[in-house]
Protein backbone atom coordinates (compact mmCIF):
# COMPACT_ATOMS: atom_id res chain seq x y z
CA UNK A 1 0.00 0.00 0.00
CA UNK A 2 1.32 3.39 -0.98
CA UNK A 3 1.66 6.22 1.49
CA UNK A 4 -1.04 8.40 -0.01
CA UNK A 5 -3.50 5.51 0.10
CA UNK A 6 -3.00 5.17 3.85
CA UNK A 7 -3.70 8.87 4.28
CA UNK A 8 -6.67 8.60 2.00
CA UNK A 9 -8.27 5.73 3.87
CA UNK A 10 -7.67 7.54 7.15
CA UNK A 11 -9.39 10.59 5.75
CA UNK A 12 -12.43 8.54 4.74
CA UNK A 13 -12.61 7.00 8.23
CA UNK A 14 -12.38 10.46 9.85
CA UNK A 15 -15.08 11.78 7.54
CA UNK A 16 -17.44 8.93 8.44
CA UNK A 17 -16.76 9.34 12.17
CA UNK A 18 -17.50 13.04 11.84
CA UNK A 19 -20.71 12.66 9.88
CA UNK A 20 -21.92 9.99 12.28
CA UNK A 21 -21.16 12.28 15.19
CA UNK A 22 -23.02 15.21 13.69
CA UNK A 23 -26.20 13.21 13.34
CA UNK A 24 -25.92 11.06 16.49
CA UNK A 25 -24.73 13.59 19.08
CA UNK A 26 -27.12 15.95 20.85
CA UNK A 27 -24.74 18.05 22.88
CA UNK A 28 -23.82 21.28 21.11
CA UNK A 29 -20.08 20.93 21.67
CA UNK A 30 -20.06 17.29 20.57
CA UNK A 31 -21.79 18.23 17.33
CA UNK A 32 -19.36 21.07 16.70
CA UNK A 33 -16.37 18.81 17.33
CA UNK A 34 -17.88 16.25 14.96
CA UNK A 35 -17.96 18.83 12.16
CA UNK A 36 -14.33 19.67 12.90
CA UNK A 37 -13.40 15.99 12.60
CA UNK A 38 -15.25 15.83 9.28
CA UNK A 39 -13.26 18.83 8.13
CA UNK A 40 -10.02 17.17 9.21
CA UNK A 41 -10.87 14.16 7.09
CA UNK A 42 -11.62 16.24 4.03
CA UNK A 43 -8.44 18.31 4.33
CA UNK A 44 -6.32 15.20 4.86
CA UNK A 45 -7.69 13.68 1.67
CA UNK A 46 -6.89 16.88 -0.24
CA UNK A 47 -3.33 16.91 1.02
CA UNK A 48 -2.85 13.23 0.28
CA UNK A 49 -3.74 13.85 -3.37
CA UNK A 50 -0.88 16.32 -3.66
CA UNK A 51 1.60 13.46 -3.62
CA UNK A 52 0.15 11.05 -6.17
CA UNK A 53 1.28 10.30 -9.72
CA UNK A 54 4.91 10.13 -8.58
CA UNK A 55 5.39 13.81 -9.25
CA UNK A 56 8.87 14.98 -8.46
CA UNK A 57 7.42 17.82 -6.41
CA UNK A 58 4.24 18.13 -4.41
CA UNK A 59 1.25 19.64 -6.23
CA UNK A 60 0.79 23.14 -4.73
CA UNK A 61 -2.89 23.54 -5.61
CA UNK A 62 -4.31 21.24 -2.89
CA UNK A 63 -2.24 23.07 -0.30
CA UNK A 64 -3.64 26.40 -1.38
CA UNK A 65 -7.13 24.93 -1.24
CA UNK A 66 -6.64 23.37 2.18
CA UNK A 67 -5.32 26.61 3.67
CA UNK A 68 -8.46 28.38 2.45
CA UNK A 69 -10.62 25.51 3.65
CA UNK A 70 -9.09 25.57 7.11
CA UNK A 71 -9.71 29.29 7.44
CA UNK A 72 -13.33 28.78 6.48
CA UNK A 73 -13.70 25.83 8.87
CA UNK A 74 -12.17 27.77 11.78
CA UNK A 75 -14.55 30.65 11.16
CA UNK A 76 -17.58 28.37 11.04
CA UNK A 77 -16.53 26.52 14.18
CA UNK A 78 -15.94 29.76 16.04
CA UNK A 79 -19.34 31.05 14.99
CA UNK A 80 -21.03 27.81 16.07
CA UNK A 81 -19.27 27.97 19.46
CA UNK A 82 -20.37 31.57 19.90
CA UNK A 83 -23.97 30.60 19.18
CA UNK A 84 -23.80 27.63 21.56
CA UNK A 85 -22.36 29.85 24.28
CA UNK A 86 -25.10 32.42 23.79
CA UNK A 87 -27.81 29.77 24.00
CA UNK A 88 -26.23 28.44 27.19
CA UNK A 89 -26.13 31.92 28.71
CA UNK A 90 -29.74 32.63 27.80
CA UNK A 91 -31.34 29.34 28.75
CA UNK A 92 -28.78 27.07 30.41
CA UNK A 93 -29.43 24.45 27.72
CA UNK A 94 -26.45 22.67 26.28
CA UNK A 95 -28.00 20.20 23.88
CA UNK A 96 -30.81 19.98 21.34
CA UNK A 97 -33.98 18.71 22.96
CA UNK A 98 -36.49 17.46 20.39
CA UNK A 99 -33.62 16.58 18.17
CA UNK A 100 -33.50 15.01 14.77
Amino acid sequence: METYQIYNLTSAVLFVIGIGGVFAARHFIRKIIATIIMGGGVFLSFVSFAERDALTFADPVPHALVITGIVVAVASAAFALALARRIYQLTGEESFTNDK
Binding site: N8, V22, M38, F79, L83, L90, E93
Partner: peptide, 28 residues
Protein backbone atom coordinates in the same frame (compact mmCIF):
# COMPACT_ATOMS: atom_id res chain seq x y z
CA UNK B 1 -33.98 31.73 16.65
CA UNK B 2 -30.62 30.92 18.25
CA UNK B 3 -31.36 27.20 18.59
CA UNK B 4 -32.75 27.02 15.06
CA UNK B 5 -29.76 29.02 13.85
CA UNK B 6 -27.22 26.73 15.50
CA UNK B 7 -28.91 23.71 13.94
CA UNK B 8 -28.94 25.47 10.59
CA UNK B 9 -25.22 26.26 10.91
CA UNK B 10 -24.29 22.69 11.85
CA UNK B 11 -26.32 21.35 8.93
CA UNK B 12 -24.73 23.90 6.62
CA UNK B 13 -21.21 22.93 7.74
CA UNK B 14 -22.01 19.24 7.29
CA UNK B 15 -23.36 19.90 3.82
CA UNK B 16 -20.34 21.89 2.72
CA UNK B 17 -17.91 19.36 4.14
CA UNK B 18 -19.66 16.56 2.24
CA UNK B 19 -19.50 18.71 -0.89
CA UNK B 20 -15.81 19.45 -0.31
CA UNK B 21 -15.05 15.76 0.16
CA UNK B 22 -16.51 15.12 -3.28
CA UNK B 23 -14.43 17.97 -4.66
CA UNK B 24 -11.29 16.41 -3.16
CA UNK B 25 -12.08 13.09 -4.83
CA UNK B 26 -12.63 14.76 -8.17
CA UNK B 27 -9.44 16.75 -7.89
CA UNK B 28 -7.61 13.59 -6.93
Amino acid sequence: ALVAGLRYLLVAITGSMAYLFGVALIYG
